[in-house]
Design a protein around this nucleic acid. Structure first.
Lengths: 200, 200
DNA sequence: TTCTCCACCTACCGACCGGTAAGTCATGGA
DNA sequence: TCCATGACTTACCGGTCGGTAGGTGGAGAA
């Protein structure tokens, strides 16, 4: 439990940014979450932008790491991709936070990160394309085709991952749980179909 | 071209909120966009929340209307659903704005609208489920199964619709255009497969 | 002409924003 | 013992936020 103040702040920032977005969170909010003043936060991260940047850096590193883990096991490329994608659906609280941050980055980067010129998702997407084109069934497909297929799955996964509160609110807990059960199953089928190759 | 001040403000708000989110836009920004002061805006919409609410109201009405149009043509249910979904992919600037607002609502409503208890997406989602269960091939499926299927398509469509700036930034205009061409094609295939029935 | 209403204005409020400046206090090495 | 460093504090800055108060001026009804 000996987590440094800096790491505590990063964790708090991750959750708050994922819930309310860059503009919806003040550095005082983040610092308050760990019981300190905003100047304590500024001591560790000189600006709000840098704090946000480190949060994104961390999630992109997480995906990088996850991919390395999957590849290290030395299984069939089909297995690797399937495992990698299904790991994103698992939706632990941390997974949900990452999905939300990813989605916010997609929505906001036109205004924010693009001015900084940093694309935190680049490595992640390129890694995915690489994994798809490594599949025998996709060998003759272009990168664009692989990316399109992967992006559709990514959308299906993350859109849903982010929607829990809304879906619970609209349909109630009971029907949401029913939905959740069939969703993961159907998604598995969708992934399997994609892995099997482009639909000619 | 005789648009009321009120409507001009609503249009400006729609674009700004879609680009920067609720917290990223001030009422002075919106009013400035039509050459007036923020007090002029507050004259028409008493609070910022109400302005945002009307924006969401408008897009949910748009989907309601679109569905009514599709149903009025009296075609086969398969055709109806396909047309409805493909209309969202078309991605005129207005479509993109709507996709972005929808996605922001999914991300933010836990903090914002849920306290108001209003679910702007409810009618939209229920309408979609209704259209799926009207398909002969889906007659025996549960509502949860239909919703799951539809939600996956919704995710694939909207996640991509929102990603244009990011994808252009990462891959460049050339590769983005290549991606765009194959994406819509593949998505059409995905929709067709869904319409054909649940994958047992 | 007077009155009312609408659309919009300037002026202002308290709260909060990100960030700076300058300090306090504990730790630990020379 | 002295000094440096790191982790934090209070005090404060200029600026912006959403919103209120109290107008002004023009159009139309009486």
């Amino acid at each position: 439990m000996s987590q440094t103040t800096r790491d505590q702040m990063l964790d708090a920032a991750k959750v708050l940014f994922s819930e309310r977005g860059f503009y919806g969170v003040s550095i005082a909010n983040v610092a308050g979450e760990v019981g300190l003043t905003k100047q304590a936060l500024l001591h560790h991260f000189s600006t709000k932008e840098k704090l946000y940047g480190e949060v994104l850096e961390e999630i992109s590193q997480h995906f990088e790491l996850m991919r390395a883990d999957v590849l290290a096991a030395g299984r069939a490329p089909e297995d690797e991709l399937q495992t990698y994608l299904l790991a994103m659906v698992s939706r632990t609280p941390e997974d949900t936070v990452r999905s939300r941050l990813l989605m916010r980055e997609l929505l906001d980067n036109k205004r924010r990160a693009s001015s900084a010129g940093v694309w935190y998702l680049k490595g992640f997407l390129e890694g995915l394309v690489e994994m798809v084109t490594a599949l025998p069934a996709w060998r003759e497909a272009t990168d664009a085709e692989a990316l399109a297929a992967v992006y559709q799955l990514l959308g299906a996964i993350n859109y849903y991952a982010v929607s829990e509160p809304t879906l619970r609110g609209i349909f109630g807990d009971l029907r949401y749980d029913a939905l959740d059960a069939v969703f993961t199953e159907q998604l598995g089928g969708l992934i399997q179909k994609m892995v099997a190759g482009p639909s000619q």
